[in-house]
């Protein structure tokens, strides 16, 4: 990994931790699992004409910290996160600069993305629409409704990324509603399905760059909830908890070593 990539990934993670501590906000695990995906999108893939929807809106903190590194948000704005009377709430909001669509209730982002992709396709425009969904979100019927539609209409300008961190609100995904075999299910719906390590930026970029025709692209990004902090990784507690001052120091120390 290049030095610049490491530095930015480190900064994003440290800001997520600091802001979660400062605002006493939850969903830190979900925010840490998508850092590389958002980084690749914003720094390597998205063009001005493209659209991105964060459907798992509870990971807002991750998007805000990425928008800060991208210089779309300034430090004052970022550090207003969670303060009374400001716009940066814990679920992503379109009232914040650089945010395409507000989400927070799961199962909304994909239908909206499909609408956008359908519009671009109907006008023969080459804008692409990217949407990041969670694995828990595959419990929502509306996600499958829109996937059926996207495949039927051959929306090859639609790229769906699944943050496959395998843990949802109350525990491991497969103990709650079994999703596997995800790849076979999505393929059967008619999408082009790819799988990658969601923390390896070169692998993510490679898959984004594969050309696909007549089918939506569906990327299963295997990730780790709480990625980067040993005591948060794959631990459901961090869907709810925020680090206290002592844990924050420990977590930042780990991140600094890992992304040095």
């Amino acid at each position: 990994m290049k030095q610049k990539d490491l530095r930015l990934l480190k900064n994003i993670r440290i800001n997520i931790l600091k802001l979660s501590n400062k605002a006493k906000s939850s969903h830190i695990g979900s925010s840490l699992s998508i850092v590389e995906i958002l980084y690749v999108l914003y720094f390597k893939i998205l063009k001005k004409k493209d659209r991105f929807i964060l459907s798992k809106g509870h990971a807002a903190l991750s998007l805000y910290c990425t928008l800060f590194e991208k210089k779309i948000l300034n430090k004052k704005e970022l550090y207003s996160f969670g303060h009374n009377g400001t716009k940066l709430m814990a679920h992503v909001s379109h009232k914040v600069k650089g945010v395409e669509f507000s989400t927070g209730s799961l199962g909304h982002g994909l239908p909206v993305a499909v609408g956008k992709a359908l519009f671009f396709k109907s006008k023969n425009l080459n804008n692409k629409v990217y949407v990041l969904i969670s694995d828990g979100e595959l419990n929502e019927g509306s996600t499958w409704e829109s996937l059926l539609f996207a495949c039927h209409h051959s929306l090859d300008n639609l790229i769906i990324i699944l943050d496959n961190n395998k843990i949802q609100s109350m525990g491991p995904v497969n103990n709650i509603i079994k999703l596997e075999p995800i790849k076979k299910k999505i393929q059967a719906f008619g999408a082009s399905v790819f799988k990658c390590n969601g923390h390896k930026i070169d692998k993510i970029i490679k898959i984004f760059n594969i050309k696909n025709k007549n089918k939506p692209k569906f990327i299963i990004a295997d990730t780790i909830k709480g990625k980067g902090v040993s005591f948060m990784e794959s631990n459901n507690l961090w869907h709810y908890k925020n680090p206290d001052d002592r844990q924050l120091v420990k977590a930042i120390k780990e991140i600094k070593i890992k992304y040095a």
Partner: peptide, 25 residues
């Protein structure tokens, strides 16, 4: 090219409507 049948899926139809409308339609 301006009419689409969403199938029997009202949630998707409304989400898509929002998506299309968000592109100035």
């Amino acid at each position: 090219k301006k009419m689409y049948n969403a199938g029997v899926s009202e949630q998707n139809m409304m989400g898509m409507s929002a998506g299309i409308a968000s592109e100035k339609n």
